[in-house]
């Protein structure tokens, strides 16, 4: 058992662990977690614990990676409610697509995935925001019924973005430089549930 290669193999385990802890992107961290599982299985097998190595390989690399992948994919998402008509537009130059592209750039900085959910009319869109079906709504000003008329006449900010999550609002307020939209924070009715 006192072979010199054992020490070198065991030294690989903290190396992989340090690599895992310095990862920022959650998906990259998942891949490194798989590498850590493989190295750990090797260490356990070399040290003579075959059953532990088998469990580490099956649970550590397969089950936890899959479960974490599902968890990361479903939690790191920004759901944006939009009107169905605007999704139908195909012009890439339109201010709506510019706005979505800006949001995508900001989201990719924080490893957020954007999900566009179409709604038939502004009323259902507003209700979806209040009932916490979406995190953000993007709506064209002409579709809204209550707002001050001065801003419409200026016409410089044709879109109105409402956010119901305070952290998201903070991020968007500092990062969103798009001239196409105004940003407001909306308090949803039931504040007991946290996202």
């Amino acid at each position: 058992m006192n072979d010199s290669y054992i020490y070198v193999i065991v030294a690989l385990l903290p190396l992989a662990a340090v690599m895992l802890t310095v990862q920022v992107n959650p998906y990259n961290a998942l891949v490194i977690r798989g590498i850590l599982g493989g190295v750990a299985a090797l260490v356990y097998a070399v040290l003579g614990a075959a059953d532990v190595a088998l469990t580490e390989a099956l649970v550590g690399t397969m089950l936890t990676t899959t479960l974490y992948a599902v968890a990361v994919r479903s939690s790191l998402v920004m759901q944006i409610g939009v009107l169905k008509d605007e999704l139908g537009e195909t012009d890439d130059r339109s201010p709506f697509f510019q706005l979505i592209a800006d949001l995508q750039t900001i989201g990719s900085k924080y490893h957020l995935r954007l999900e566009l959910l179409p709604y038939p009319n502004p009323q259902s869109l507003h209700r979806a925001l209040i009932e916490k079906e979406v995190h953000v709504t993007c709506i064209e000003r002409s579709h809204e019924d209550e707002h001050d008329s001065a801003e419409i006449e200026s016409g410089r900010q044709p879109y109105h973005t409402a956010v119901r999550i305070h952290r998201l609002y903070d991020i968007l307020q500092t990062e969103l430089a798009s001239p196409a939209t105004t940003l407001t924070y909306v308090t949803a009715t039931d504040s007991g549930e946290k996202h």
Binding site: G34, A50, L54, A57, T61, M62, L63, A69
Partner: peptide, 23 residues
């Protein structure tokens, strides 16, 4: 240890496939 190595070699890559699909 040999049997464990064979099992890890043959079924260990299933996690890789699942992760690749999600990515």
């Amino acid at each position: 240890i040999g049997v464990v190595g064979v099992i890890i070699l043959s079924v260990g890559n299933a996690g890789l496939m699942l992760l690749a699909h999600v990515i």
